[in-house]
Design a protein around this nucleic acid. Sequence first.
DNA 1: GTGAAAGCGCTAACAC
DNA 2: GTGTTAGCGCTTTCAC
Lengths: 332, 332
Amino acid sequence: MTSIQEVALSAGVSAATVSRALAGKPGVSDRVRAKVVQIASDLDYSISKSAASLTTGRTLTIGLITPDVSRWYFGHLVAAIEKKLSEAGYDILLYDIGSGESRGRFFAKMPLRKRVDAVVALLIPNDHEATVLQSLRVPVAILGASRPGFASLGANDVLTAATAVRHLINLGHQKIGMIGAGNTPEDLVSPRERRAGYLLALSEAGIDFDPQLEQNGDYTALGGERAMDLLLAAPTRPTAVFAQSDEMAIGAMKSIRRHGLSIPTDISIIGIDDHELSDAVGLTTLAQPLADHGSEIARAILGQLSEPGVEVPRIELPTRLIVRETTGPAKP
Amino acid sequence: MTSIQEVALSAGVSAATVSRALAGKPGVSDRVRAKVVQIASDLDYSISKSAASLTTGRTLTIGLITPDVSRWYFGHLVAAIEKKLSEAGYDILLYDIGSGESRGRFFAKMPLRKRVDAVVALLIPNDHEATVLQSLRVPVAILGASRPGFASLGANDVLTAATAVRHLINLGHQKIGMIGAGNTPEDLVSPRERRAGYLLALSEAGIDFDPQLEQNGDYTALGGERAMDLLLAAPTRPTAVFAQSDEMAIGAMKSIRRHGLSIPTDISIIGIDDHELSDAVGLTTLAQPLADHGSEIARAILGQLSEPGVEVPRIELPTRLIVRETTGPAKP
DNA sequence: GTGAAAGCGCTAACAC
DNA sequence: GTGTTAGCGCTTTCAC
């Protein structure tokens, strides 16, 4: 492992000069700089970030916290964020913290302390978690609702959900079910806000809310399937269902087919996400431009890094209705 | 940012003692240790890994390289690996390097140099890439075929593919199509080995290989759909199709339905992966236990870290046939 | 334009 | 059992 000293020795200059030359700092003659660069390359020299961090206080590393990279939603965000930040010269420390107890343990230990220049947290922090993140004393970006001191980004979940439900209403549906999730405050997406959008669209149309038409699908395909089973077993069957995610919608489709019903003739279904397989199964949905979300949040954090203290306004990105084959007019 | 010195001062001991006490090293009295721990906690002290790395030479960080975290396959592997390694006290530096040019750039820069204690590369390195990884002088684990000097892990792709095709043959199919991928040597999964398994199963059954029945689906749903379109347009239509991934299989299903054919009555289809949505769409497939793959490869690299130099044997994990509704007997 | 010296925060070796 | 010392590999004054 060649050190800066060896490069300096070999180039016949001091370590300070090598440092300046390699960092592109002024105050080095072109001739010396060229020579140093050449020799560094010959010696296969690469800087020790540990040592550099120790002196500069900067780590050139950004912490990225996610509840579960294996989920479609987070995987896409992580990929987009990683791309943008690595282009800017930062390395990514990934923490896939899960939920519940393991999430608690993560915030208790907070392994990012003194290790990163900034943090992107793909979750909605509760007050305690927000305090812990603040205590890192680096810029932090979060998803979901805006919070003082954090950059934040998200879709307008109320509007998105309302758009989905309005689409069903416009098709003439009145009995509209919803497959959502418990009011888990620690999850990323905001089931509550999407529920609010559902209620909003119903009330706009003068449709009474029927609690029987609401079921929990846990944001998984299996959960969606079970939720649909329950909706179909209820006394008043819905003619259309709004699922808060495509995975749940696709699970629900299985249940519908299993009951011998056809889509959209008997039941319409709409999701949110535009999951990579939604096109293949013909699912009508609201597309979330996750690649844009990711690069925007990355951009926000890079902004904080270059101009600390400047409040970053909340970024809100649009969703787009994609009509495919799972929604159709209500039977007369 | 409190340093070890401040803790030492506050506890009335030397920095060395604080270091020993906090690291759980022997040679500290219980009384002093307790006091130091208490004060460190009071002062909200946390160690500077940069400084610690500089002295010990260990970073407690492992580099994780993946072609694309947003893909189902890699997302699940990354999640499983992260879990296991973080439990062992390591942090993960994530590099989502893409393919082609960006992959080349990554290996040219090799930002992991001097930054990690070990590397897990979720890809099949070519010779050049293997050399670069070797040059890091840390333990490296890779996916795919075994290579001297690396730990490696993967499924037996030949066997897996053959199992899929044998299932179709057992159902009486003779005209069996395949949706695969170009012989992209840099991709993770081995299209060539899966193709070999396909050919093996055919020849076992005395079925001649028909080049017209083979199409490229690029490991995406859309690619699978297009590949299926081509298979259906060919003079001799297959009665069953083996897709090298579930995403491609699901795309192919769309094409089949669009042509007014029914599954499995007219055409059977089988995939590989057991994607999270495969159950919902009823796809017959070969399940790959990615969580196991991930934790096994993590275990392999942890083993290398604790006992350097010990060759780790290649780990091969089984796949399991899951019969659902997309495969059925060939029409008589 | 370049070098010498100091120091970032920690751990390991050696004293006592 | 604990303290002192040296040094890991850099960057950053401050001289010249």
